[in-house]
Design a protein around this nucleic acid. Structure first.
Lengths: 212, 212
DNA sequence: AAGTGTGAAAAGTTTCACAGCG
DNA sequence: CGCTGTGAAACTTTTCACACTT
């Protein structure tokens, strides 16, 4: 029974999944430098973790290291890509093209890492367009039909905090399964939906505790 | 190793400190509604945690609940504020007023939560100014003197990834103790400096694992 | 010799459950 | 009675250390 009945994802620690993304970045850099093999010590140092942790993390989803040698960069890259579900471009929508939202649209950090923001929505599309956003900005009434027709599963949420929960309810009902939430609020969703909170003021507050 | 003294902050779990900020927000809302007392069950629900956890978290830094009644909103608020080191406005600088950086300057999420972004720095201040930033944008050569003269301890870092480590070295040497880092890179700092990473693409990647 | 894979110990967190106070 | 404060149990994650493979 300890041989996992639970298929695939179930028992990889959540934090290990975050680290997988970090490893992925480091491996891309190595590959760009035409490195073919890397040891757990070297990769761990680049990723800012302990080598034992790296080995354990990788072991969660297979054995592909060679003892005495290290890990083949190529194989690790494609395995992590598959594990993270990044084989194909994931379409993403952005809801709330206000100050922060339209900034994110002009910022190309997502595209660089292989996510395509396919559309933006706002209660007032014209205002957003005037903020220098090049992407199509639709009225939020089009949300449901767009999500359905384009099978979008991921959404970035930047609406004002007082509207956040209501918009989330609509997103979830329309089929969104993952939400990157920038509003400082605890969102309620069904258990099959994953919410990731990015709360900038909270991060600063946290820092402020650690400075003396 | 376990030389852990009870000197002030030392042994509150790190995750509890994050939650403290969340509780703080919820309490502010309660106070705005003129609620005077709140039970652990109610506050916990608002914060999205279990009531036992809330009680344990609060107990880390004192006892101020009244059995049978709950916690006094006012006292909790000021205690958390003190614990987080938020008694006084913390000045913050922003380094790298490019796309994301200047967006954050126009976004007022920090000010709303009581942080004052006092200055911005960029290798090319004119370009930043043209992005509609109202705050003073200084050339990055002024960093060290500004930090020294204004005793700034917190910095938001939005420079391109290839410059990030070099800029951080300068910030740390100049006396910065907490860094909110938006570059997708693992920064090396001395142990007395705290780095908080906000890696937007990484958050999306993480979500992408959980959708099926 | 170099470096993975992994059980087992340690450390860190959360949850339980209930005594005890107002 | 209602609700806090908290030891102890349960669970999660990290680290250690070493057998084992190339």
């Amino acid at each position: 029974m300890d041989t996992s009945e639970k298929i695939g994802k179930i028992d990889i620690p959540k934090k290990a999944i975050y680290r997988l993304s970090i490893y992925y970045r480091c491996l891309q850099k190595l590959k760009a430098n035409e490195v073919e093999t890397v040891s757990s010590t070297t990769l761990a140092k680049a990723a800012g973790v302990k080598s034992a942790q790296l080995r354990k993390d990788l072991a969660y989803f297979g054995q592909f290291g060679t003892r005495g040698l290290g890990y083949p960069v190529d194989i690790l890259l494609s395995t992590i890509r598959d594990t993270l579900g990044r084989e194909h471009l994931q379409p993403v929508i952005l809801v709330g093209a206000g100050n922060l939202g339209s900034a994110l649209l002009r910022y190309h950090g997502f595209e660089k890492e292989g996510f395509e923001v396919v559309a933006a929505f706002d209660a007032n599309p014209d205002a957003a367009r005037s903020r220098g956003v090049l992407l199509a900005v639709y009225p939020d009434s089009d949300l449901e039909s767009f999500i359905g027709e384009n099978s979008v599963k991921l959404a970035i949420l930047c609406v004002p905090v007082e509207f956040a929960q209501a918009v989330v309810n609509r997103l979830v009902a329309a089929g969104i399964q993952g939400i990157l939430n920038f509003s400082p609020i605890v969102l309620e969703v069904t258990p099959d939906v994953t919410v990731n909170n990015v709360d900038l003021a909270l991060e600063l507050e946290h820092l402020s505790y650690f400075i003396r």
